[in-house]
Design a protein around this nucleic acid. Structure first.
Lengths: 212, 212
DNA sequence: ATTAATTTTAAACAGTTGTTTAAATCATTT
DNA sequence: AAATGATTTAAACAACTGTTTAAAATTAAT
């Protein structure tokens, strides 16, 4: 057995994570977790006090994985903006190819109280104090005039990376492609998205000297 | 009362739609629907046979609204590709500003059996026989060489429109903006996204004569 | 080897959920 | 006004859900 080298606590957490990410909190039943983990129902509460307690741990893990990438990449003081964008795209597509359910899971479950979850992670402060923000100010906005709200750029970047994974069940169905070729498309996007962002940026900036 | 001019059947459907779209199928309880509609619990089953029956009606309505836009816009034989893209962006952002919950609702609930829902709508055939496909073949691919899979363009278009609405609860929290200024950003995107798509397209095409 | 602590189990509990029932109310028809 | 049909209601049902219990089995400590 491949699961026999895991402790029961780990088996429960692994099973729960798989089901929570696939079906969401409400649709996941404690008995489903117990069955998938191949353990007695009562052990879920024995090790994790409650379904909600187990869920919170898994949610925090995934929030960390999902938003940790942003912070790690954007806080590196030794890389250029272009390198940051490329790393951003690369890391995210790798993560989502491995765990495509993370975005829908997070956006679904966090929706109704985003403040609570983001506060618990300190996201707000961490992102706004990121090295990238200053760097973007200096290198892009400092030298030129960005004619659009910088949030548009961030929206485009995250949209073009994340959304295809959210829509993939429908897209693969409608366009008759399988998961393998979908993943190939996403692999291509690792190179394409940074290029697109770059031309969007150059198309939205004007040299300050020209406007003076 | 504003709800007194609705029949009880309409009151139930309206309440159910609101709650289903906000919380999803499993998290929505028949008693919540009854309370929100201000009617007796048993009337839900009296008018709609079952919770699932009520849900299916609402899901089909919203699939129709969400994907109907695509088909209507893309099947118009009297508009150029550029006009189609502009209409596509415009209609979608208007719809999602009004009902921002539709995408997360659809992608969450359809995920586990996309084939069933898409088949029930005949999406696959309808999209693939759309006038736009031929037009795109002739006007873009015919005259030039598109160096990337056309699906990338469609992904970019839909991503840049839809994803911000999915991520908006988190984005507004992290970037400390309110719903009004978020909607202003989306309004700006009506003009920006077609421009971005255009420069992405021209950047990914080569005149056939150049390659010969 | 015996005791103590930990882990696992089957069973039960109390609350919730979707649904049904049968009576009551209301509207319409005769 | 009486009768018929449609609608609404309160109550109950049975299945399900998260959780707890107390005993059994296993492991660790003495």
């Amino acid at each position: 057995m491949s699961s026999s080298d895991l402790t029961t606590e780990e088996k429960i957490k692994a099973a729960a994570e798989s089901i929570f990410l696939e079906k969401g909190y409400e649709a996941t039943k404690t008995r489903d977790i117990a069955e998938a983990a191949n353990i007695n129902l009562a052990l879920v509460n024995y090790y994790f006090r409650s379904k909600k307690g187990l869920f919170d741990i898994i949610m925090m893990d995934n929030l960390q994985r999902f938003f940790g990438i942003i912070l790690n990449v954007l806080n590196d003081p030794n890389t250029s903006i272009n390198a940051k964008i490329e790393a951003f795209v690369d890391h995210y597509i790798d993560l989502l190819k491995k765990d495509p359910n993370i975005p829908l899971f997070i956006f679904s479950e966090v929706r109704n109280n985003p403040a609570e979850f983001m506060a618990k992670m300190g996201m707000k402060e961490k992102i706004q104090q990121t090295y990238f923000i200053r760097q973007f100010q200096e290198e892009v906005i400092g030298k030129n005039t960005l004619e659009i709200n910088p949030l548009h750029i961030f929206m485009n970047l995250s949209s073009m990376i994340v959304f295809p994974f959210i829509a993939s069940p429908i897209m693969t169905e409608v366009f008759s492609i399988n998961t393998v070729s979908f993943n190939q498309l996403m692999e291509e996007r690792k190179k394409l998205i940074p290029q697109w962002i770059k031309i969007i940026l150059t198309n939205s900036t004007q040299k300050n000297t020209e406007t003076l």
